[in-house]
Design a protein around this nucleic acid. Structure first.
Lengths: 115, 115
DNA sequence: CCACCATATAAACAGGTACTTATATAAGTC
DNA sequence: GACTTATATAAGTACCTGTTTATATGGTGG
């Protein structure tokens, strides 16, 4: 399943929004989403599975609860694809900003090299 | 149909990529995509319809051809949603860059006011 | 006007996906 | 260990979406 398909579902988008506020248990997520969309617990659980299996969320057990958290990697990929088009709606960077971005990139690279 | 659903289809993503290089006729798009995905002309035409009807593409007639172009508005919306999560994968802006962005925003606003 | 190109629409069908209800797993409590 | 709570999985079903073939539209040139 492609990242865009994962994001195509409104329930999954909502789950990600909720998780964006911080780690959350399956039960809390289910409660909120059930109220908003009127779907069953298994339905929510299956959406959580989709998020897990496609790398959008990680899960850890804490007692009997399962705590979900956002994993941003697939969204970064989606963002990367979108950026090909970004010039069409964003004003161009000024020369100074471009230079600052270049410098930051360079610093990041040398930090990587130090590892 | 939600913008993310529109972007969920690989043929439509490819069409947008092609259109991102500039205005293009239905026939040219169909030729390329047919070769890459092995689908029929009507299939491509229906994808173009989806792009049209959801505001991702505009079309104008030129003789017997129809020339398509990207309309970035829905992708801007998608980008806006994604940005809620961007802090998770992007390094923070430096203070100077933040200030530059603020200033640019302010200039844009006053330019809007001048219209 | 007719034939021809480029493109769009119609109708039918196949597969996938998102539900439902029912049930399983697994951790805490008595 | 039995009972409860939290969560996941299974099986079945309905709908939606993307395809195909066939056909319509509409502009161009003889």
């Amino acid at each position: 399943m492609h990242a865009f398909d994962v994001l195509g579902d409104p329930v999954r988008r909502r789950l990600l929004e909720l998780l964006n506020d911080g780690e959350c248990s399956s039960g809390e997520l289910t409660g909120t989403v059930r109220a908003e969309f009127g779907i069953s617990q298994p339905a929510v659980s299956q959406h959580l599975r989709v998020l897990r299996e496609n790398g959008f969320a990680t899960v850890r057990r804490e007692g009997t609860r399962r705590l979900y958290a956002v994993d941003p990697s697939p969204m970064r990929d989606v963002d990367a694809w979108l950026r090909r088009f970004a010039a069409r709606w964003e004003p161009h960077l000024t020369a100074l900003e471009t230079e600052l971005a270049r410098g930051r990139r360079a610093r990041r690279q040398s930090a990587d090299g130090d590892r």
